[in-house]
């Protein structure tokens, strides 16, 4: 079970969180024209990386905040966590 540092609450066990997918995907702006290919990339296409990966988690049974977590998908090492409004650097 992973140990995730919620930037709001501190270190908590994985079972308080739910996984939310790739954090680097930006939702296209509402009302803007977008090609089929770009839309498919947003909705469906994911890289399934091995290694460092920025992903979203929600602290569901805690502060309910969505957070950004940088995790190694192969080793589960967590390098960094950010609040929702903090940019991935």
């Amino acid at each position: 079970m992973l140990h995730i540092k919620c930037p709001h609450c501190g270190i908590r066990s994985q079972n308080e969180f739910s996984y939310g997918g790739d954090a680097t995907i930006k939702r296209p702006e509402l009302g803007k024209e977008i090609s089929d290919q770009d839309w498919d990339n947003f909705v469906y296409n994911r890289k399934s990386l091995r290694g460092k990966h920025w992903e979203l988690w929600q602290h569901l049974s805690g502060c309910r905040q969505w957070i950004k977590v940088q995790r190694d998908t192969a080793t589960h090492e967590i390098f960094k966590t950010l609040k929702a409004n903090e940019e991935i650097s």
Binding site: S18, G20, L56, Q58, L60, R64, Q65, W66, A84, N85
Partner: peptide
């Protein structure tokens, strides 16, 4: 969770 996702992110 869906609403929180859009509002927060």
């Amino acid at each position: 969770s869906h609403l929180e996702y859009y509002l927060q992110l």
